[in-house]
Write a protein that binds this DNA or RNA. Structure first.
Lengths: 235, 235
DNA sequence: CGGATTTGTAACAATTATGAAACATTTATG
DNA sequence: CATAAATGTTTCATAATTGTTACAAATCCG
């Protein structure tokens, strides 16, 4: 047996009995299984630690579809494979057409055997794709509402959509956000973001601020100017 | 009798009686036999441990053909010989034309004696071709969907087809994949992949990235460039 | 208010990074 | 040794980034 961390699976479904049956069977296969009876409940968990999410499309207030969108829009969870569970009469095309990045989907009523097979299949496909210490890792993600900065992958999501930031823009934004609530002088910004590489004018910052503001859309107004002092990221 | 691990054989067929008969007879010959009544069920097993798979072509949802393709496409199982069982009227050419790497095939209705003979024959041909500790071995395989990197055999499969990667290409890809989700600076890449052997230019990485991208086909776009930062393997 | 100062913005210029291809060199292999 | 394969380098074209400037707009402060 190789050294491996147990794969954690989350089941999100409002049918309690079904959940229990699946949980038992999956645990029997060696997986670590958690259950959430609603999307709301699921969202209270630290979803990063799951290797796979089994998601019922038809649920209460937040539908499975909405939840899937949220998962895919959140940089911390967007890589987690999702298997949709759908009622039998749901149109095939609908699911696929949703373009939600579902890795698989299963029709109800499904057999336990079938579910396990799908789970294994998906996990086999995506094995090695999760962070090494998913649950213990320092996130390295800055997030302000719908504005997300992945400091490792150097990318920025605005309400779920990736925004291309240049290196300087990215570093500038990261600097401001990580000093949220403080006004940073141009000197400080130059020192940290521009390092001591080359000598650039103060005004360079201003221009980059402008570019940043437009790129991050509605969050642009979070970058505030304090005349005579510098810039900051507001609460 | 020499020291040998019992050879495990998997029968995948939906005719229960037939399976049992075969199982009894093969066990009588000293083999260890498991049965799966469908491809789905078979896929829940750890297939690596089998020395041979007897596969019925005509089955339920996942046909035997599809399953064989999956087996051959998965680097963990691609070495396992498969004997196809076909209905009598199946065209010979069809089987061979499938180019599935079947090691043999048998027409139904077949005699038990016949099956055993084929099994022995195939196992004789392929003996020594399986991993030493097939079931206990640490896989050491990186897999992203249809892209598979066998770190031990130093080979790469793209959707089941072997792709020849040079040493540097292989190591570079392995490095990127094992740091999936992070952007690796050229410095980091040089340090790890090029070690401190020789001094090479940054641009060497770029060129190897390009070569890699074209070689791994559609997965090439998984290798992302973050201008000014470096390269990374995306989710 | 009104001039001085600071900041926003757009356009431009300069620089740098990257991809692709071709070429050169080194290394493996028989 | 000869050949092929692998690897590194150079070059060119292009794309992307970054910095500067000029001017408009906003802000500051008497």
């Amino acid at each position: 047996m190789n050294i491996m961390v147990t794969e954690k699976i989350l089941i999100v479904d409002d049918e309690e009995t079904l959940c229990e049956v699946l949980k038992l069977n999956l645990e029997n296969e060696g997986y670590d299984v958690d259950i959430a009876f609603s999307a709301e409940q699921a969202l209270t968990l630290d979803l990063r630690e799951y290797s796979l999410i089994l998601l019922d499309i038809m649920m209460g207030e937040i539908s499975g579809i909405k939840m899937a969108k949220m998962l895919k829009a959140d940089i911390k969870t967007s890589h987690i494979p999702i298997i949709f569970c759908t009622a039998k009469d749901t149109e095939d095309d609908m699911i696929m057409g949703l373009n939600l990045g579902a890795d698989d989907y299963i029709m109800k009523p499904y057999t336990v055997r079938n579910v396990i097979a799908r789970v294994k299949s998906v996990l086999r496909r995506t094995s090695g794709s999760k962070p090494v210490n998913a649950s213990a890792e320092k996130p390295e993600i800055l997030q302000i509402e719908g504005l997300q900065l992945d400091l490792e992958f150097k990318r920025c999501l605005v309400d779920g959509a990736e925004i291309k930031l240049t290196k300087k823009e990215f570093e500038l934004l990261a600097y401001l956000i990580s000093h949220r609530g403080k006004i940073c002088s141009r000197e400080q910004i130059l020192a940290k973001v521009w390092s001591n590489e080359v000598v650039v004018l103060d005004r360079t910052i201003d221009v980059n601020i402008t570019r940043l503001r437009t790129k991050i859309g509605k969050y642009g107004s979070y970058i505030v100017t304090r005349s005579g002092f510098g810039y900051g990221f507001s609460y």
